[in-house]
Amino acid sequence: MDQDNLLKPINSATVHKICSGQVIIDLTTAVKELVENSLDAGATHIEVKFKDYGLESVSVSDNGPGITTGNYATLCLKHYTSKLSAFDDLATVRTYGFRGEALSSLCALAHVTVTTATADLSPRGVQLDYASTGVLKGQTAIAREVGTTITLSQLFAQWPVRYTQFKKTIRREYARCMAVLEAYGAVCAGTRLVVSHQTAKQGTASQMVFQSNGKPLWLDRIAGVFGPKFRSLLTSYSVALDEHASDADGSNRQNQSRPDDQPPSPGSSRIDGYVSLPRSGCGRSGTERQFYYVNGRPCDLPKVARVVNEVYRSYNPQQYPIVFLNIHLDPGAFDVNVSPDKRTLFLHDEARLQNRIRVS
């Protein structure tokens, strides 16, 4: 038998690089994963800093509890996570992250540096450096407050083809990343998100891109990210998805509720949020200001978006709506383990959801 035709296992280093390139596909995915780590850690202040649009580096800092010493060595190893231990846990997962792939994958695609301090060690912290395999290769004592900063340098630089494309489209990548960060800034109550950018021309000075306020009311958070003008353009939207809910006749309760003041009771399903008023001048020429969430998780829901646009354009055919909609579902009613970036979701009864939007 020809030895060249025999099936042979791929070595672990190659498997790691191949899989990592599928988990972290662009700048947006890389930054999103780090921000979600901070949110899952309970941070109330998160700062994202870009250098040269992320081409040189991007860092995410938070005031979370910090990383304990027992987790230094395993922090960037593949499939190490505190968020689930068995496949069945996916049915009840409520955190943004859960697979334990992101940091390990980032190590294969960039130079990763972590600085962290816990309450029992601060003001003494530690800087951790990781190899491309995710193995801890060194640590240095530093001074820092409680929290964690993860810095990615030279993202994709070791991948010639992807790096060439990355440099060519860096402005577009950066713009997409801003849109995703705005989605988190608008939805996350109790957490301030600050985004800044520094170019080579600016030297060490950074320019503020936007900051969220983390206020309790969703409309206040939207206005904090997109400006106070949005208040006058939006109307609240709230509709129950349960067949026997109090508004089962399909009527929404526009302007009668504040979407995130009262979360739905356990086991109930509903859509809450804001949509631009259905009149000329309140919408937009495109769909770039449409944000969809499932249980507060930013996601892509193209079928739902299509229905929302169809209904809105039946009233205002010249424009597309501004949309902020959060779909509250039981964790078992959707599957988030679909795509590497976790933005694609399978809704188990999406047709009924679309119909409720049409008749509301």
Rank of each mutant, 00 (worst) to 15 (best):
V195D: 00
N213R: 04
S206Y: 09
S212G: 10
Q211E: 14
F230M: 15
V209N: 00
M208V: 10
T204R: 11
V195T: 02
L241G: 06
S206G: 07
A245G: 05
S236E: 08
A245Y: 01
R231C: 05
S212F: 00
L234N: 00
Q211S: 13
Q198S: 05
D220E: 14
K201C: 10
S232C: 06
Q198E: 10
Q202F: 09
A240M: 08
R253F: 12
H197M: 07
G227E: 00
D247I: 03
G250S: 05
Y237F: 15
N252C: 12
Q211T: 10
S238R: 12
L233M: 14
P216L: 04
V194R: 11
Q254P: 02
S246W: 12
V239W: 05
L234S: 00
A205W: 09
W218E: 05
P216F: 00
A248R: 14
W218D: 02
G203H: 06
A240T: 07
N213K: 08
K215Q: 14
M208K: 12
A240G: 14
V194S: 06
D242Q: 00
S238F: 13
Q198H: 03
D249L: 05
Q211L: 07
S232R: 11
Q202Y: 07
A205I: 13
Y237S: 06
Q207E: 15
F230N: 09
Q198P: 02
F226H: 11
D247F: 04
Q254D: 13
A245C: 05
S232L: 09
P216A: 11
S236G: 05
D220T: 01
F230T: 15
A200L: 10
Y237V: 09
G224P: 06
A240N: 11
G227L: 01
R221I: 04
G224C: 04
S238Q: 15
V194W: 12
T235F: 05
F210E: 01
A205P: 03
V225R: 09
S236Q: 05
F226Y: 15
M208I: 12
V195E: 01
A240E: 10
T235L: 09
S232W: 06
A248H: 13
F230A: 10
D220N: 10
R231F: 11
G250H: 06
S251G: 12
A248W: 11
L219Q: 09
S251C: 13
V209I: 15
W218H: 05
L219T: 06
N213L: 04
Q202D: 15
D242S: 00
F226N: 02
I222H: 07
F230P: 02
G224H: 03
L219M: 14
Q211D: 07
Q202W: 06
A248L: 12
Q207V: 13
S232I: 03
K229G: 15
W218P: 01
F226C: 03
T235N: 10
L234E: 02
G224T: 03
R253Y: 13
N213I: 01
G214P: 02
